[in-house]
Design a protein around this nucleic acid. Structure first.
Lengths: 211, 211
DNA sequence: CCCGACACTAAACGGGAATCACCCAAACGT
DNA sequence: ACGTTTGGGTGATTCCCGTTTAGTGTCGGG
């Protein structure tokens, strides 16, 4: 950002070198390492080495390590949000939309396990809440998008129990729990993933929504 | 007697308790700090200071940091297992037993958030799987105890969908997801916890089990 | 009286994040 | 043409962390 071209007359001095490129390079390298080795494995020094720059240089472009990784996560979550928005606009039954969103959510988590863990399993130890600002806001918008059809269902009186809000939270939590366990304990002998997802969704939707 | 004061020792040294007391003292101090400050906050040096001993001394009694914290967690999970065993033997309907166990599970998680996170949310980054041996085995036995009544239900043909195994895993995962989110994102505006637990259990049990 | 075992320690190591005090050269104003 | 800015960069340093090494003082036997 802050891309301003040089103006013949007064005002600021501008892009001298390839400063902005650096930022992108860092993000790219960091993403590669983070995906491959997770939060703890994505060291400042390792990222800097991969870019071919000293570790100090990263602090020219990012406040701290968390900002780098959260920026990467923002990208990924932005994609998830886009999918949710897309689904939200389809002219199909609200329950079907809910199911599609949750399926997309779980697929996202399983496809991006490290990002998912960083954003949704990050203990307060690891990342202080303030830093998450942007990422958290994206997450909120995802949840808001997801809450939409749920509240439609609630408004039409098809909710068997609880409020729309609690139903949305419970559905989210159940899917989160499933993918979180699959990610953090991949060696347990799980039933096939598709079956687990299907049972979760069938079970909860059948249990919460009257048809 | 013989309070060896030879060297101008920094601060009061422990008055020579017999060796095997030390181990218990360390565990007690570690538990206190771990509960208050979590995994990252429970530093070797901090624990050692609390006991009044040098950090090196901890390695006389424990292989490494993880062994200390996992031993603490074993204690806690042992209690959960005891509760599950107790419930398993009650002469009540299998579904009621399942519900009681899951309620106890969630209560345990919310009462011991740091332990819960360590054992059930520990990314592979944080603790290598081998070290978890004892703890993981306790967790397995908890799950086995929980699977019992589920398989009873499955055997009596009351399962609406999926296998007994997948139903057990899904129920566990859903409850895990709920408490995990409540623990790691305590600032979101959640519906009341009791309602969330109730909706989760009502929804899933109603959706999975025919009455 | 010495000897080894024990419980413990200070110091150090390697590696993390982050900061400091600089440096270098291109870009600008004049 | 030339000093000055200033953006991008660095190496050394700080402060923790978990863990290791090389000891040190005390003790119970032989």
């Amino acid at each position: 950002m802050t891309v301003a071209l040089k103006k013949p007359h007064k005002s600021a001095r501008k892009p001298k070198g390839d400063g902005h490129l650096r930022r992108g390079e860092i993000l790219a390298a960091a993403e590669r390492i983070f995906i491959a080795e997770g939060y703890a494995g994505a060291t400042i020094r390792k990222i800097a080495d991969a870019v071919g720059v000293s570790s100090t240089a990263l602090y020219m472009h990012f406040r701290d390590k968390d900002q780098i990784l959260l920026e990467i996560s923002d990208d990924a979550i932005g994609q998830l949000l886009a999918v949710n928005v897309d689904i939200a606009h389809r002219p199909i039954d609200a329950v079907a939309r809910v199911r599609l969103m949750l399926e997309a959510y779980m697929k996202f988590a399983l496809d991006n396990p490290n990002t998912y863990q960083l954003v949704f399993c990050g203990s307060r130890d690891v990342i202080s809440k303030e830093k998450q600002a942007a990422t958290a806001e994206l997450g909120d918008r995802c949840f808001a998008e997801f809450s939409g059809p749920i509240h439609e269902i609630a408004a039409s009186g098809r909710l068997r129990t609880g409020s729309g809000e609690s139903a949305a939270q419970v559905l989210w939590a159940a899917c989160h729990g499933l993918v979180a366990l699959l990610i953090t304990m991949p060696d347990r002998n799980w039933a096939p993933r598709e079956e687990l997802m299907k049972v979760t969704l069938d079970g909860l939707l059948h249990g919460l929504v009257t048809d």
